[in-house]
Amino acid sequence: MTQGYFELFGLDSKFSIDLTTLESNFRKIQSESHPDRFVTANDAEKLKSMQLATLANEAYQTLKKPALRAEYLLKLQGIEAISETNTAMPMDFLMQQMEWREAIDDAKNANDIASLDALLAEMQQEGKVLNTALALFIDDHQDYEAATEATRKLIFIDKVSIDINKVIEQIEN
């Protein structure tokens, strides 16, 4: 099965996608490939529908999240954005990461949910800026080098957001 994730849902291979189309076409494939529809089908048809369901799920999970969508688009260009052996990030970005991490620690120790909410809002803003940048780099300018750096940054921002939410949850319980 060599069909790409975007083609599967009838989408153009772009960073800016219509999430409603993604969602509805995913649900459609899900129901069309549902095992209940293949109770009387032969083994080959059963296998085919199962493979389609698996592919659709994988594709949906990837395209739904901006960072993973960008990583996938770069992979289509032959670029491995998230290499495990490349740990070089811009120094000012890493400094900022450390500052945010320390601010989370301080807020955690002080049970300061307001500060955590403020940090979370900051991450959402950072994420928005990176999303806009990615659409510009990938869709408008095919600047894959800039897109690679923005994708890597977005993964860090997502991770910080997840960790802030975890801390808020811990404090609230």
């Binding site: 740990t87 890493l94 400094m95």
Partner: peptide, 13 residues
């Protein structure tokens, strides 16, 4: 030395 792992978002100083 400051580095980060884009695969998981870890940062190390």
């Amino acid at each position: 030395g400051m580095v980060g792992a884009p695969a998981c978002g870890d940062v190390m100083k």
